[in-house]
Design a protein around this nucleic acid. Sequence first.
RNA 1: CGGGGUGUAGCUCAGUUGGCUAGAGCGCUCGCUUUGGGAGCGAGAGGCCGAAGGUUCAAGUCCUUUCACCCCGACCA
Length: 408
Amino acid sequence: MRQSKLFTKTRNTAPKDAVSASHKYLIQGGFADMLMAGVYTYLPLGYRVIKNISNIIREEMDKTGAQEMLMPALQPKGIWDETGRWESLEEIMYQFKDRSGKDAGLGATHEEVIYDIVRRNINSYKDLPFAIYQIQNKFRNELRAKGGLMRGREFMMKDLYSFHISQEDLDEYYNEMINVYKRVYERCGLEAKVVEASGGVFTKKYSHEFQIIAEAGEDDIIYCTKCDFAQNTEIAKSKAGDACPKCGENLKQGKSIEAGNIFQFGDQYAKDMNGYASNKDGEKKPIFMASYGIGISRLVATIVEIYNDDKGIIWPESVAPFKAHLISLNKNEEAEVIYDKLVKAGVDVLYDDRDSSAGEKFSDADLLGIPYRLVISKKTGDQIEVKKRNEENSEILSIDEVMGLIQK
RNA sequence: CGGGGUGUAGCUCAGUUGGCUAGAGCGCUCGCUUUGGGAGCGAGAGGCCGAAGGUUCAAGUCCUUUCACCCCGACCA
């Protein structure tokens, strides 16, 4: 990709009201653009990050045998009335009447839609267990959107639903999913604390949150610095300074970002929406359900909150919009040659071919935070100056050495 | 929804007790010169001063209403 053609350009000032690093840098760098409070366009750079994170999630979900599909965002009132959530979610769900006077809403979550399909299609224990997921925009009528991509009214989410013939079977999958989730965060460069929590407005049942310790967070948790023990202060039985019940280390209290949430609904939907299947003995049994969510657009912001410095973003390689940022100084012909080589070798490279000053190019490179900066100038001859975004020093390497480094 | 704040050029902002044709920096266009940390000179384009109503000889400035955005709170997969 040639930077001269990239939609959009970087800005040299951050949005005036942005407080958090992720809000500032994602807007300033041209990763996202606000349409209204809490509603953002993912520009080409930001959408590349979204796709990278989505693919990590897909790989991990697919490994568990889950199947991806896509459900509608526009939904009828009827199925929500069956669970009573049309009323209980009316503060968070966008609800309205269409032109024929029918009540409709925009999906804030998808348990009702998926369970409606399941009850009409699953009749036997032989079809259980299974899991379905989708990656889709959710709509939530937040009283106050904030922090850029951190809390939006329309935001991207991966939601997975698992179905089981028994609570035991659900427990097994649920516990496995905790580890799958940890692996997803780890692959995105994040260390998640697994926190027992209340389900909020969505359910009163058993649930776990995945929390990333960060100052920009909205949640407050008690956590252990040595092991993965953590509790939300809303329901915590421990306090800062107490010994960790798991390993004995002193507990700390801190701000954190809720990067995921999983719920057990048990047989509640079976009762509310009449979803039953026959077991081995021909007995009618409830179809158990659990839900598993990861806010993908929030994860983008979370990663930036963890990986940044006073100059910009420092993307982990696994999610970076490009692997390498090739910078040409002095209108260097050699850079064109090297760009061609990188593209032919299949390297994701952003090529700064703009006719602008060295200082501007370096500043933008720091802001965009692509892992490998490759500089071509009069000084470098037929070689390349390589600097990693997360390191201070650079080195001069041959094109072959650079290929080896980047493609490893 | 309560409290606080902000709306003036694409962006960041200035604009005095109301007073001539509305300003700067950055960005943009053209020309020349530059090129290792946000370059220089010259020329230029760009505004219904968020919207509506009112006061006044005169409104970016005062009053009323309303819309939008931000921050704190309440709320929150």
